[in-house]
Amino acid sequence: MQAIHQDNDSVLTECELPALKRLVESLETRHHIQVIKNPGICLTMVRAEDSLEKQEFFLGEALTTECEVSVDGRPGYGLCLGEEPIRSYCVAVCDALLHGESAAPAELLAFLEEHRALLIARDTEEFNHILRSHVDFKLMEQD
């Protein structure tokens, strides 16, 4: 089985934005947050390779939003696909709190676990819908 959404960034980039925003608004009341670099859009060139010869090539670019903050003096970087200024700021705040010297806030860890479970449930349900189109074609000679 695939270990989906185990990465915290996977949760933060895909969870419901209003919920993430509420979490960060709550964190803002207890931490000193300074925006070092305002959210801004840029490009990420997506690298790929062919399956057999492993020839690397550039697939195309993806719109990306980046943001840099300092939370209680700890740096945080927020990166996500699309034009997502609020999400990139929220990801940056969470990144600073998750990778600082002190333990991450319980509120943040609880949020991650709750939303990780929601995303896993969402993807599992979707995949099981997809599995309903699993096919086993028979040849005409077969019964």
Partner: peptide, 22 residues
């Protein structure tokens, strides 16, 4: 696209990790 700055290069895509829809 030509108006935007390219700031990142991704790691190589791993299609074996794909969430398969088809």
């Amino acid at each position: 696209r030509a108006t935007l700055q390219r700031r990142y290069y991704s790691e190589k895509l791993a299609t074996r990790e794909m969430f398969v829809r088809r």
